[in-house]
């Protein structure tokens, strides 16, 4: 079991005592040291799904907010002559994208039928009023995103503020604030939204945003509170308190940075939730009303013709699904990336 120590070659000076200064460093740490941010970014990048989702979201945002600069078509311009035309991309001859449709078993050039000149083409076709569907989808995506983002921002402000206050103050204030959350969260959120949207029907976007904001902040508040309660008693906060820093300053300088991961992750799930509820309200007819469009209204419009012109619903539905997928996958990825437990 033991080595045989006999045949070892010993050079003179081998047994000289080691010069400590020149010798190996006692405290050397060999693993590369990463800051928290670098570590999160590294892990996010290594998560292919999350990273792809991130890229997809960037592209969708570019399309929604900058697409009109490249694609000059008024999403609200009606041309009844060209109603319900299928997609036609010049130079592409694949059925479904070449302006042809199946009419009672026969392949018909819908554009010729409508008397359109050969120059007329709609990349994703037109709707029942002859509006350019691609332009409308870009426009609808923008409205959907705007609503979701503004609502999320409001959620964030209320939720984080409420949570920090509740957790920091503790005692009676906390108890009272927790009751408010408890009551709010035992009402189905959909019902509140429907009520709000019905009550302020004619105000359009604002009412939806208000409805979304009113409901979604409770989760955020609950998470922030729990985290604040934990952080409150940690040494670095106690140190700041003993040094006499003011409460708002502590909240801003010490609490928020430590809450950031929880907040960012929760935001990644609040946004798709808001997108979903907006589409839902618009779909049942109490959300965005024309001539404005959102993904929900586009799906609802498209559904009417689904049997004959399925693309009118498929395209907005696909955009909605991709948005939801990308946000959820990115959220999952972020949660893993922020969670040191899942470190590998």
């Amino acid at each position: 079991m033991a080595d045989n120590p006999e045949n070892i070659e010993i050079k003179p000076g081998d047994f000289a005592p080691l010069d400590k200064q020149a010798g190996p460093d006692k405290e050397k740490i060999a693993a590369p040291s990463l800051t928290f941010g670098q570590d999160v970014w590294r892990r996010l990048k290594s998560n292919k799904t999350a990273f792809t989702s991130f890229i997809v979201l960037v592209l969708l945002f570019l399309m929604a907010f900058g697409g009109q600069a490249l694609y000059h078509h008024d999403p609200n311009a009606q041309s009844p002559k060209y109603a319900n035309l299928p997609p036609k991309i010049p130079g592409v001859n694949i059925h479904g994208l070449n302006g042809h449709i199946n009419q009672s078993g026969k392949d018909v050039d819908a554009y010729a039928q409508a008397g359109a000149s050969s120059k007329v083409h709609y990349v994703l076709g037109t709707d029942y009023l002859g509006r350019d569907l691609f332009a409308r989808i870009m426009y609808g995506t923008r409205i959907s995103l705007e609503i979701a983002l503004i609502a999320t921002l409001i959620d964030l402000t209320i939720g984080v503020g409420f949570g920090i206050l509740s957790g920091w103050k503790g005692g009676r204030v906390d108890l009272f604030m927790q009751r408010i959350i408890e009551i709010l969260s035992s009402v189905p959120s959909l019902v509140v939204m429907v009520l709000m949207a019905t009550a302020f029907q004619k105000t359009g976007m604002a009412s939806i945003i208000a409805a979304l904001a009113l409901i979604n902040w409770t989760t955020m508040a609950r998470l922030t509170r729990a985290q604040t309660l934990q952080l409150k008693n940690q040494d670095f906060i106690l140190a700041a308190r003993t040094l006499g820093e003011s409460a708002p300053k502590i909240a801003w300088k010490h609490l928020l940075p430590n809450l950031s991961s929880v907040i960012i992750i929760q935001t990644m799930f609040t946004i798709p939730n808001a997108i979903f509820f907006e589409a839902f309200l618009s779909y049942i007819g109490i959300g965005i009303s024309s001539p404005q469009a959102s993904l929900g209204t586009l799906i609802s419009d498209g559904q009417k013709n689904f049997q004959f012109l399925p693309y009118q619903m498929w395209y907005p539905a696909i955009v909605l699904i991709i948005l939801m997928l990308a946000f959820n996958l990115l959220g999952d990825g972020m949660r893993d990336a922020f969670d040191p437990k899942s470190k590998r």
Binding site: A2, D3, P5, A16, P17, L18, K20, G23
Partner: peptide
């Protein structure tokens, strides 16, 4: 520690 400690693994 001696010089050899940083060069050769000690046997049993």
């Amino acid at each position: 520690a001696m010089k050899i400690d940083t060069e050769k693994q000690p046997p049993f």
